[in-house]
Design a protein around this nucleic acid. Sequence first.
DNA 1: TTTCCTCGATGACGCTTGTCAACGATGGCG
DNA 2: CGCCATCGTTGACAAGCGTCATCGAGGAAA
Lengths: 120, 120
Amino acid sequence: MKISSAESVIMEALWRKNPLTSEAIIAEVGEPNGWTEGTVKQLLSRLVKKKAVGATPEGRRYQYAPLVARGDYVAAESQGLLDRLFDGRLAPLVTQFSDAGKLSDEDIAELKALVERISK
Amino acid sequence: MKISSAESVIMEALWRKNPLTSEAIIAEVGEPNGWTEGTVKQLLSRLVKKKAVGATPEGRRYQYAPLVARGDYVAAESQGLLDRLFDGRLAPLVTQFSDAGKLSDEDIAELKALVERISK
DNA sequence: TTTCCTCGATGACGCTTGTCAACGATGGCG
DNA sequence: CGCCATCGTTGACAAGCGTCATCGAGGAAA
């Protein structure tokens, strides 16, 4: 099942630290996103139903933890974008950022080092 | 306004060649996507309402053409992904593909040449 | 034990999306 | 001058999403 954009905010919190109780998650993402307790609980429920998050009973409450790895999610999202917009190829994506002037000198240096390392 | 995923298929057709009549668009994207005429017409209407596509009367039909440049769309989508998943930095995205073993030798060569050119 | 608090489950609602069909105007052909 | 083929507009509907509130069950505290 697909993880929606609001849901991914919850996931990010859980990827950062887990397991967490709903209370902790609400504390973590509620305020910054202007969400009430009810909203966060609903998102959490949907994630559990989607099997993206696991809920283990601990006493009165649940401990929530991600069931999908962030790496997998990131890989799928990235690949999706690449396929949809860049014909599956990475270089044009990099070109696009370069052409848009979105690359700092540091970005370029990082890339250079990275490519150096990869290509050996 | 946001362009949805089905809508973007229509946009891609128009970016490839424009202006087009609805008939041509239906011929172009209907069959490959398993869409009926009605579906394509609806998507087109929504795109016009969203001002992503312009419709100029020609005789008793319209000629449809994109009002947003593909470059702008691609830039926004790419930036969005980068911000959401990679803290706005490009190098980690490249790393992710590298780590996932998704880079062919050709990809790497392209990247290398590209970075070379950019960094001067 | 009774009252209260908290947790997760569920209902609700308006909006967008994906998908398709029906309708009303209009131009072309016989 | 009528009829038919089209075109764009609209309506429709189920599913998903963003958002929030209410409810029932079960501990905790008095």
